[in-house]
Every structure is written in structure tokens, then in C-alpha cells.
Nucleic acid binder design. Structure first.
Lengths: 187, 187
DNA sequence: GGATATTTATTGAATGTTCAACAGAACGCG
DNA sequence: CGCGTTCTGTTGAACATTCAATAAATATCC
């Protein structure tokens, strides 16, 4: 008897299992720790921080809302709410766009920049302590390659998916290969 | 002049930078994709799924609230709210504990078990498609070791930290090395 | 040019999460 | 025992995120 419906699932092997559970653990916990540090010393969310970094790297420290949403993997709605909060906190401002009157620029303020410059060193230290410095050089190398692959795959699938506006990211991503740490380098 | 305050931060190297950004990307996107799949076919959250798995692996399919919170890296408050939702959905029930009259058991229902059994094969497939199958054997091996290290470190730091009740986890974790996939194997 | 579709960004309500306060039970110790 | 402390779990309010609906500007197409 041939059955078409109940193909045996390809369960994970024990090693894959272990690997996957460890990944899940890191996935869940790492952000918690990073945010705790960031919050305690600098009163910033990880989301806040990411926005600040992206803006700080952009020409004229400004990015259009939709692109920023894509860069930071958020929905436009969420970004909009978040910008409202950050605007209230004086970290950013909105400016309307000349060339497209629907558009808004998200612009980093001086205060926002200062805040980032102060926070960056501690944040890098935190990232090192909880993650980067725990890895051997080989692990860093392999991991970098592996996650690059996964990222590409997710982005490729992303067109179909829930994540809004992932198109047009690769272009600007290339320009901003400099990084969360590098942000404050030239302060 | 000696200055004690402004030690030069240890910025990430370019390779570390790339590695870290890729990690962040995966960290952000992977859960989104997994949840999308799980939600579409089975109407379950990743959080729901994790709870179901943990319970399914436990003796008598029941775990005390606090321990379950620790196992699934949530606060007790969050778990409490979540249990309320899952209880309304008929996936779990609460039962009060005989030996400790403060305590509550989180218990998997038949319906919850069935739901998990149906969802598990698709979820494994999803995990493979978006993650595991994208990696070479070497990458899996290195990654497993690397994240195991990071996890240990985070747990060690956890005593101090925001994450509640991480103590006593290692004990029960050893027993449940069987996994999210294995859960439904003996259905 | 003008109707239609698409893109940009925001809004408010529904949902989920965090945070601080709480109540009850167990523990520890003089 | 009696007192304070710790532990378990829940609650409601504050906060964040998602989702669907909207308005306004631009693109597209005939």
C-alpha cells in the first residue's frame, strides 16, 4: 500500500538537536543580556540603539522611514511608533522630504549622536563579553560564513514573507558595512 | 598626563563586525520566519510551541510553573499570562499541587498533545529549511560547540541577571535532552 | 488628462509583554 | 511558637508590537 500523505518527517539528529537547542537558547537570551547592560548604563533599548547606529552611518545622518524600517527589520508601523517615542526623547526628529511629499526623513539629532557616542564603547564591550570574546578565531570565522548564508537565504525568502520591504536593502547595506561599533569612531 | 577614564574601546575588527551583524540578522529574522510557518499551518506561536514541547517531554506531561518559566526563558509573570491564553485555547490546564499548596502544575491536555503531534513534523521541516539544512556538517559541529559555550556563559551570568530562576535548570535539562522534534516521535 | 493602482507614512484598537505590587504558603531561627 | 524572610504564582496598569484601516502623494496606463 502506497501512502502519499504520511511521509516520515526528517527529525533532527542528536547533534543537530543539540545545536538547534543551543541556538535557540542564545537567540532568546543574548538580546536580554545586551539590553540589560544598555538599559542600565544608558537608558537605551536595543531597538533604540540600532536606529541610532543606522542613522549615524547614513549620509547626513538621515534615512527615509521605509528604508530605515527595512534596514532594522521592523514593520513601518512599528518604526513609526518607535520614532514617536525617540522623538519625544529628543534622539531624533522627523523632517518632511522635498522630492517626495509623502516622504519623511528620520534624522539623528545632536543629542542622539552624543548619546550613541557615549553608549557605543560600553555596548561593544557588552557584545564582546557575552558573545564575541567567548569564541575562538575559528569559531568566529565559521560562524560568520554560516550566518551570512542563512541571512542571504532569509532575505531571498523575504520577498514572499512577513518582513516588509527587504528589497533595496542590499544596495545600501553595502555602503554601510562599517558597523555598530564603528559608528562612534570618528566622533 | 595619565587619564584613567577614557581607555580606548576595543572595537570589533572587520571580520568580527561582519560576523556580529550577520548574527544579529539571524537573531532577528529567523524567529519571524519560523513563527510565520507555525502560525499559518497550525495557529501556534513559537512560545506556545515551546511550552507544548517542554510539557510533552516532562514526566506525566506536567511541570511546575516556576520551573517551566525557567526552562522556557520567560518571566513567571509572562508565563502566567501565557498559560491563561493557552488554557483558554484548551492546550493546557492548571492543577494545584498537593505537596506545596502555593504551587501549580502546568499540565498538557490531550488536545494540546494532539496539536503538538500535528505541528511537530512541519516545524522540524521549517527549522531545516530556514536553518539546519543550510549549514554544512562542519558548520553544524562548530556552531554547536560555540553556542554551547555561550549558553553556559549566559546561564552563569544569569544568577545575577534579569532572567528569573535559571538555577536548577541544568538538572532537568539533562533529562530532557530529547527534543522539540523527538517530542512527537512516540505518538 | 484622468482614472486606477501603488507607495509612503500614520493612526487606533487588539494583542502581548514587562513591571511593580500583592496574597498566600513555606521556611528559618531565636 | 512567633516573627520576619523567602518563595510561588497571580494581577492590573504601563508599555510595546501587530494588525487593519486610512489619508495623501506619486506612478502607471490607456
Amino acid at each position: 500500500m502506497v501512502d502519499m500523505t504520511t511521509e516520515e518527517p526528517r527529525w533532527l539528529s542528536d547533534e543537530e538537536q543539540q545545536m538547534w537547542r543551543a541556538s535557540l537558547g542564545v537567540l532568546n537570551l543574548l538580546p536580554v543580556f545586551l539590553e540589560r547592560d544598555l538599559q542600565q548604563k544608558h537608558g537605551l533599548t536595543l531597538h533604540d540603539y540600532e536606529i541610532l547606529v543606522r542613522l549615524s552611518e547614513a549620509p547626513e545622518r538621515r534615512i527615509r522611514m521605509t528604508e530605515l524600517a527595512g534596514l532594522s527589520h521592523q514593520s513601518k508601523s512599528r518604526l513609526s511608533h518607535q520614532m514617536t517615542r525617540m522623538e519625544n526623547a529628543g534622539l531624533v526628529v522627523r523632517e518632511s522630504c522635498d522630492s517626495d511629499r509623502r516622504g519623511q526623513w528620520a534624522v539623528l539629532t545632536e543629542a542622539g549622536w552624543d548619546r550613541l557616542v557615549k553608549a557605543a564603547p560600553d555596548h561593544v564591550e557588552s557584545v564582546r563579553r557575552h558573545y564575541v570574546d567567548l569564541l575562538t578565531d575559528e569559531q568566529k570565522r565559521v560562524l560568520g560564513a554560516a550566518f551570512e548564508t542563512v541571512m542571504l537565504h532569509l532575505h531571498a525568502d523575504g520577498g514572499t514573507a512577513a518582513c516588509p520591504s527587504l528589497s533595496g536593502i542590499s544596495a545600501s547595506a553595502k555602503k554601510t558595512t562599517g558597523a555598530s561599533a564603528a559608528a562612534a569612531k570618528d566622533a
